[in-house]
Nucleic acid binder design. Structure first.
Length: 565
RNA sequence: CGGGGUGUAGCGCAGGGGGUAGCGCGCAUGGUUUGGGACCAUGAGGUCGGCGGUUCAAAUCCGCCCACCCCGACCA
C-alpha cells in the first residue's frame, strides 16, 4: 500500500478529548474516528488491525473445535422477556419498534438467540458437545462510554457458546476455552491475568476474566502475591480481621449529639471503627433492605445483589429511609420489624459494638448479635481491600487495575430451561442442555494491546496483528537513484506477498520516521542515497534502537526471516 | 443520574471591559533545502455548539438547551 493513496492521515497533535494512551495513539495514527460518544469508525489501518485480531481469534476457536456462524443484530424483545434478561440489562438494552409497533432490541449479546437456535438443532446427546461462535457487532447503551475503545456502545465481540450433556463436559469445554484464550492473548503480545469474576447479568456459576493489567482499566483486581489468588473486586473475598471474642456486657444508651457517620461516632466515643456497626439502606427491586456491616468495612453491592437475588439495587434516599420509620445517622437493626435485614458475617466476631439506637442523637453501646437483633440472612457482602488478608493463605492482599479483555462463564441450564433447549439422553430422558459462554471484546483488546505496547513515539504492534509488517521508507527519492531502487524493492516485496506500507510521499526524513514510529509497523526499511552508495537498505526494528544495513539482493530474504520468527 | 471541565478553521490553541476573528500545525501553489516533525513567499479555509434575550451593535453580557471529556454511580 502506498501511503500517498492511503485513506486516513496521521495527526501531529492528538485531539484534546483523548485521555488514555491507546485513545490518543489510535486517533493520532488515523486508525479510528469518533462519530459520537462510544461510537467509532475504523479507518483502513485500524480496520486491518481489527480484522487481524478477528482472524487470529478465528484460528484458535476453530482449532478448539468451534464452528463459526452469524446471528442477527435485530432481535425480538419477547425473546429477552422469556428469559427475564430484558430486566437484568435494563436501560443498557437499546430498544426500538418496527412499523407495526413490534418491539425489537439491538442485541447486546446473543445467548438467547443461540439457545433458541440450539433448541431446533439439537435433539439428542449425539448432537453434543457443541461449540458455536460468532464475531459480530453488539450494542449496549452504556451509562458512560470511556477511554476510546475501552468502553464503547457499539462494539465487536467474539462469543463462543458451549453446549454439553453434563458438568464434566462443561468443564472440558471451559478448559478448552481457557487454553484458547491464553493462546490468543499470548499471540497478541498481551500479558493477561486470569481472575475470578462475578457472572453479572448473564447468571451462571463459575466465571473468570482475563485482565490486561493497566492503570487505564476500569476494573479493580484484588490479588495475593503469595498464593496467586486473584479476583475482580466485584467478587473478591478477604479475611476481615477477626476480633477477639468479648464477654457480653449489658446494652446501654449513650447520647451522641450531632454525630451521624461512623467516623464521627468512633471519634466521639473514642473507639475504633471496627467496634461499630454500620447500617446501610438499599432499595432492592422496589423494597427497602436493611444492611448491617461492621463499621470499618464497605458493602460490596454486587455481593449484596447476588445474596438478595434481586435485579435492581440502589442506595435508598434519605426520604425513603425516613418513610420506613428509620432514623438516618442513628439506625440499627435492634428492635427493627417488618424490614428485611441482611448482615455481613463480620458482625459475628468480636462483640459489644456501638450501633444506632433508632432515636435521634442516640446510640447503643454493647450491641451483640444475635442477642440484641436478628438478621434474615448473614453472609459475606463485604468489599475486600488491599491490605486485608488473603482468604486462601493469609498473606496481605494488594490491588491493581485491569482492562477486562475476556470473560468466560459456566452458564449451566438457566437459559436452556427457560427457552426449552433440551436433549434426550441414552435412556430416553429429556434434560436441559448445559451451557457455557466465552467472550472477547475485539475493540477493547486492540486498545489494551496499545496500552501495553507503546513508547513515547507511538505504537509497537506485534507482527501478529500489525496493520503492515514493513514500512518501506525512501528518503530523497525525487532527486536521485532512490526512486527507481525503491520502486523495484516495493514490487519485489509485494510479489513475495509481504505486507508493505510504502511511504512514497515527498516528505522529509523526520516526518517519515515519526509516522513509521507512530503507526507502529514492526520493521522499517530505509533506502536513501546513503544506503544505495553501499548497494544496501537499512532495516530497523520498531522495538529496537539499532539498525542494520542489508545488501539489496538479500533484503527480501532477510525480511521474510524476520517476519516468520 | 450526581460532581467537575470543555465547545472559536481539519488538529492544537489565543481572543472575550461589546464594534463582525487571530496564531501555530496541517492543506494548496512556487522556490530553496536534504538522515529524526526544514525554510521563504503567496493563498484557500470560520453558522465563534444551538436557540432565545439585552443592545444601534454579541464570539464577548444574560437565560435555556445540546454535544463531548474526566471522576463517581452503573456496566457481558
Amino acid at each position: 500500500m502506498r501511503i500517498s493513496k492511503l485513506f486516513g492521515k496521521t495527526q501531529r497533535e492528538a485531539p484534546a478529548e483523548a485521555e488514555t494512551v491507546s485513545h490518543q495513539l489510535l486517533l493520532k495514527a488515523g486508525m479510528i474516528h469518533q462519530v459520537a460518544a462510544g461510537i467509532y469508525s475504523y479507518l483502513p489501518l485500524g480496520w486491518r488491525v481489527l480484522k487481524k485480531i478477528g482472524n487470529l481469534i478465528r484460528g484458535e476457536m476453530d482449532r478448539a473445535g468451534g464452528q463459526e456462524l452469524i446471528m442477527p443484530v435485530l432481535q425480538p424483545l419477547e425473546l429477552w422477556q422469556e428469559t427475564g434478561r430484558d430486566l437484568a440489562f435494563g436501560k443498557g438494552l437499546f430498544t426500538l419498534s418496527d412499523r407495526r409497533e413490534r418491539k425489537l432490541v439491538l442485541g447486546p449479546t446473543h445467548e438467547e438467540v443461540i439457545t433458541e437456535l440450539a433448541k431446533y438443532n439439537v435433539q439428542s446427546y449425539r448432537d453434543l458437545p457443541l461449540l458455536l461462535y460468532q464475531i459480530q457487532t453488539k450494542f449496549r447503551d452504556e451509562p458512560r462510554p470511556r477511554g476510546g475503545l475501552i468502553r464503547v456502545r457499539e462494539f465487536t465481540m467474539k462469543d463462543l457458546y458451549s453446549f454439553d450433556t453434563d458438568e464434566e463436559g462443561l468443564n472440558q469445554s471451559y478448559d478448552k476455552m481457557l487454553q484458547a484464550y491464553k493462546n490468543i492473548f499470548d499471540r497478541c503480545g498481551l500479558p493477561t491475568l486470569l481472575v475470578e469474576a462475578d457472572s453479572g447479568a448473564i447468571g451462571g456459576k463459575a466465571s473468570h476474566e482475563f485482565m490486561a493489567v493497566n492503570e487505564s482499566g476500569e476494573d479493580e483486581i484484588i490479588y495475593c502475591d503469595q498464593c496467586h489468588y486473584a479476583a475482580n473486586l466485584e467478587r473478591a473475598e478477604s479475611v476481615k480481621g477477626k476480633l477477639e471474642a468479648e464477654k457480653l456486657r449489658p446494652r446501654e444508651e449513650v447520647a451522641t449529639p450531632d454525630v451521624g457517620s461512623i467516623e464521627e461516632v468512633a471519634d466521639f466515643l473514642k473507639i475504633p471503627q471496627s467496634h461499630t456497626l454500620k447500617a446501610v439502606f438499599y432499595i432492592a427491586d422496589g423494597k427497602l433492605v436493611f444492611v448491617v456491616i461492621r463499621g470499618d468495612i464497605g458493602v460490596n453491592e454486587i455481593k449484596l445483589k447476588n445474596a438478595l437475588g434481586c435485579i435492581d439495587l440502589r442506595l435508598a434516599t434519605e426520604a425513603e429511609v425516613i418513610n420506613a420509620g428509620l432514623v438516618p445517622g442513628a439506625a440499627s437493626a435492634v428492635g427493627i420489624k417488618g424490614i428485611k435485614v441482611i448482615a455481613d458475617d463480620s458482625i459475628t466476631s468480636g462483640g459489644n459494638f456501638v450501633a444506632g439506637a433508632n432515636k435521634a442523637d442516640t446510640h447503643f453501646k454493647n450491641v451483640n448479635y444475635p442477642r440484641d437483633f436478628k438478621a434474615d440472612l448473614v453472609t459475606d457482602i463485604a468489599q475486600a481491600r488491599a491490605g486485608d488478608e488473603c482468604p486462601r493463605c493469609g498473606a496481605k492482599l494488594s490491588s491493581m487495575r485491569g482492562i477486562e479483555v475476556g470473560h468466560v462463564f459456566k452458564l449451566g441450564t438457566f437459559l436452556s430451561e427457560k427457552l426449552g433447549a433440551l436433549f434426550i439422553d441414552q435412556s430416553g430422558a429429556s434434560h436441559p442442555i448445559i451451557m457455557g459462554c466465552y467472550g472477547i471484546g475485539l475493540d477493547r483488546l486492540m486498545a489494551a494491546v496499545i496500552e501495553l505496547n507503546h513508547d513515547d513515539k507511538g505504537i509497537l504492534w506485534p507482527f501478529s496483528i500489525a496493520p503492515y509488517h514493513v514500512y518501506l521508507c525512501p528518503l530523497y527519492q525525487e532527486s536521485s537513484e532512490v526512486e527507481a531502487a525503491v520502486e523495484k524493492v516495493y514490487s519485489e516485496l509485494e510479489a513475495e506477498g509481504l505486507e508493505v506500507l510504502f511511504d512514497d510521499r515527498k516528505e522529509s526524513p523526520g516526518v517519515k520516521f515519526n509516522d513509521a514510529d507512530l503507526l507502529g509497523i514492526p520493521l522499517r526499511v530505509t533506502i536513501s542515497p546513503r544506503t544505495l552508495a553501499k548497494n544496501s537498505a537499512e532495516i530497523k526494528k520498531r522495538s529496537e534502537k539499532e539498525s542494520e544495513l542489508v545488501p539489496l539482493e538479500k533484503l527480501t530474504e532477510k525480511l521474510k526471516e524476520l517476519i516468520s520468527n
